[in-house]
Design a binder for these strands. Structure first.
Length: 296
DNA sequence: TGCCCCCTGCAG
DNA sequence: CTGCAGGGGGCA
């Protein structure tokens, strides 16, 4: 489910809520979803949160032995939400959210049937990892080994990492001329973070049909695609993500990107540009939405 | 590079 | 009831 904007929204929520907090207990309700040693988590303090594509990385320090500075006390919790993962934060302290706003009531009661891992903090705050389809995971590794993880190593350029430029996109395109453009955008090893929603949206705003081959894009289309990728992702972040069914932010609330979408799941509805009906096909194994008039 | 699979729930 | 769902790994 969550793509870059959804994970980024959660990342920002975690920044405002769990940094500096000590994890005092861990409840694992579905063992296959937790990889690693819980002992490396319990008793540790959250130091930093980051995002790599759609992967969330929570850096923790396990300072139980007072051996501060020892790199072997530094672990990371990697969380991948895959299709239906959720992280929901229940605070005991009203000021926990950024800006000093009061905690809104949870839209998604927790724990519930899909709760798989529960992080209990010293403050009494609780972080719930839910995953209905159980495709996601929580994985604990030594922090210095995160970059050695196969999934992390295979990630391509980060759209907001500074090195994603029009030139960079062009280089990637030149490398993969015969690949289908939608498959190319979905493949995390080229650009990290795009999923089905934002791919369809970016292609629409670039005026490019999802069935095109990468190499067939002319200079102008490449430039427009570059700008479209960034703008749909930014819009997604600004609207707190896209919520179709299962995505919610930390407070269990729905994002609003879906109400602003141009083509994704708007099959049969009028194109926002020309008014002709949006079409849907199955392409690259995914539902694919587009306007055959506005996209060439 | 394409297909199947991991799962569960819900729309059609 | 079948098919489909925002991800990605493993297999040919």
């Amino acid at each position: 489910m969550p793509e870059l904007p959804e994970v980024e929204t959660i990342k920002r929520g975690l920044d405002a809520t769990i940094i500096g907090q000590r994890i005092v207990d861990l409840e694992i309700l579905l063992p296959k979803m937790f990889i690693g040693d819980p002992a490396n988590v319990i008793g540790s303090v959250v130091e930093n949160i980051s995002r790599k594509g759609k992967l969330l990385v929570i850096d923790i320090r396990n300072d139980k032995n007072e051996a501060s500075g020892d790199i072997n006390d530094e672990f990371s919790i990697m969380i991948h939400l895959k299709m239906t993962g959720q992280l929901i934060f229940k605070s005991q302290t009203l000021e926990a959210f950024a800006g000093g706003h009061p905690i809104p009531p949870l839209n998604t009661p927790v724990p519930n049937k899909s709760t798989k891992v529960i992080f209990q903090f010293e403050s009494g705050d609780i972080l719930y990892f839910n995953d209905l389809r159980t495709f996601g995971y929580v994985k604990v590794v030594l922090r210095k080994l995160v970059s050695e993880e196969l999934f992390v190593k295979s990630l391509g350029v980060e759209p907001f990492g500074g090195d994603f430029t029009a030139t960079k996109l062009n280089e990637l395109i030149e490398k993969r001329k015969n690949m289908n453009i939608k498959a190319f955008l979905l493949d995390q090893k080229y650009i990290a973070g795009l999923g089905n929603i934002y791919t369809d949206e970016a292609l629409f705003f670039a005026g490019v049909l999802p069935t095109r081959l990468v190499g067939s894009l002319n200079h102008g289309e490449r430039q427009l695609l570059y700008e479209s990728i960034l703008s749909v992702l930014e819009k997604g972040i600004n609207l707190q993500g896209a919520s179709k069914t299962s995505y919610v932010n930390l407070a269990g609330k729905l994002g609003t990107f879906m109400s602003d979408v141009a083509v994704y799941q708007r099959t049969g509805k009028p194109c926002i540009c020309c008014g002709r009906p949006i079409e849907k096909i199955k392409h690259v194994g995914r539902g694919t939405h587009f306007c055959s008039f506005c996209q060439k």
